[in-house]
């Protein structure tokens, strides 16, 4: 009973998160301006981290957690650097 409940929930959650990533990816491709793309890229990163957490629940292994943490970290650094770039046209001053 609880196994079917959980596997159904994990499946639905994965579908919803993939749809969310598709929406974000659409905005990355569509633009229209650079700041829209960066914002959507940040959302894409967070959605990917959530998808990995759900994968972790599905496989019952905590190893996915570290990958999700790394994605969140890299997403933060990337978005901060890109915002800096949009502000000044250079990343390191």
């Amino acid at each position: 009973m609880s196994a079917t409940l959980l596997s159904g929930a994990v499946l639905i959650a994965q579908i919803l998160l993939v749809l969310a990533m598709a929406c974000a990816a659409w905005r990355v491709l569509r633009g229209p301006r650079a700041q829209d793309r960066v914002l959507a890229l940040d959302a894409l990163y967070v959605n990917a981290a959530m998808l990995l957490l759900v994968f972790g629940i599905r496989s019952g292994s905590t190893h996915y957690f570290e990958a999700a943490l790394l994605i969140a970290l890299l997403g933060f650094v990337a978005t901060a650097a890109l915002s800096k770039f949009l502000m000044r046209g250079e990343v390191i001053e």
Partner: peptide, 25 residues
């Protein structure tokens, strides 16, 4: 079952919110 139900609800709630946020994008 007492653990599976909250996990199910939290998973569905969280992913639905993420999807709504991306639809907003």
């Amino acid at each position: 079952l007492w653990a599976a139900i909250p996990v199910t609800l939290l998973l569905l709630f969280g992913s639905a919110l993420a999807l709504i946020g991306s639809i907003g994008l």
